[in-house]
């Protein structure tokens, strides 16, 4: 059994388990799947600065911080004890294109040529960590949710705003991956 868990999982297995998290949270206490709101709660707790958007009863939402802390722990547990290889098998065509941008190390789940501590104070680090992270936080709050809250929870409950948001996520991502990043990689 443990050996089976240690292998990379099929997408249908992973998709089914993620889908089941929605009813589990509902049954446990009427909670709606969502991750990005945890960052709003952190702002509300630590830096509300009298901003109306951060002045609400965050104590009622504290379950969400337990949930995201769990995701952090789950990441640790799986990487440390439940994985037999770091290497991931990605499409050859993707590999070729990325190699053209100088991303040649496919030995980890993340490209070490971008996501390494040495890159923190470089232009590359500033763009991929600081700018990228800022857009993820700003954009998900502006859109009212992220992939979990809109694309999974929202679409599966037939909410039109979530379908619109998901389409815009994809448009932004397609444009960035195929048009912006190829230019960025020429310079940094």
């Amino acid at each position: 059994m443990l050996e089976l868990i240690k292998q990379p999982w099929h997408w249908a297995v992973a998709g089914t388990l993620i889908g089941l998290i929605v009813p589990i949270l509902l049954l446990l206490g009427n909670k709606k799947l969502g991750v990005s709101s945890s960052m709003r709660h952190l702002c509300a707790i630590f830096i509300p600065r009298k901003i109306p958007f951060f002045n609400y009863d965050w104590k009622k939402e504290i379950w969400n911080l337990f949930f995201v802390f769990g995701i952090f722990l789950g990441g640790f547990i799986a990487a440390k004890f439940l994985t037999n290889t770091n290497q991931i098998v990605i499409a050859e065509s993707t590999k070729e294109i990325l190699a053209g941008y100088g991303i040649t190390d496919f030995s980890q789940i993340m490209p070490t040529q971008i996501f390494s501590l040495e890159n923190i104070f470089t232009l590359r680090g500033f763009f991929f960590f600081v700018v990228g992270g800022f857009l993820v936080g700003f954009g998900s709050r502006y859109a009212g949710g992220c992939t979990s809250g809109h694309s999974i929870m929202g679409i599966s409950t037939f909410q039109l705003p979530s379908l619109i948001a998901t389409c815009c996520f994809m448009i932004g991502g397609f444009f960035t991956a195929n048009v912006i990043l190829p230019i960025i990689f020429k310079f940094i």
């Binding site: 945890s38 952090f72 991929f128 960590f129 809109h150 996520f169 932004g172 444009f175």
Partner: peptide
């Protein structure tokens, strides 16, 4: 907001390769 915010989020998603859920898991991993 779903349109403007959605587009902004999509750009960030492609740059970081990560939406908010995986961010927590990446740090843990």
């Amino acid at each position: 907001g779903q349109i403007y915010g959605g587009l902004i989020f999509g750009i960030g998603w492609a740059i970081t390769g990560s939406c908010p859920g995986p961010l927590y898991a990446q740090i843990g991993a």
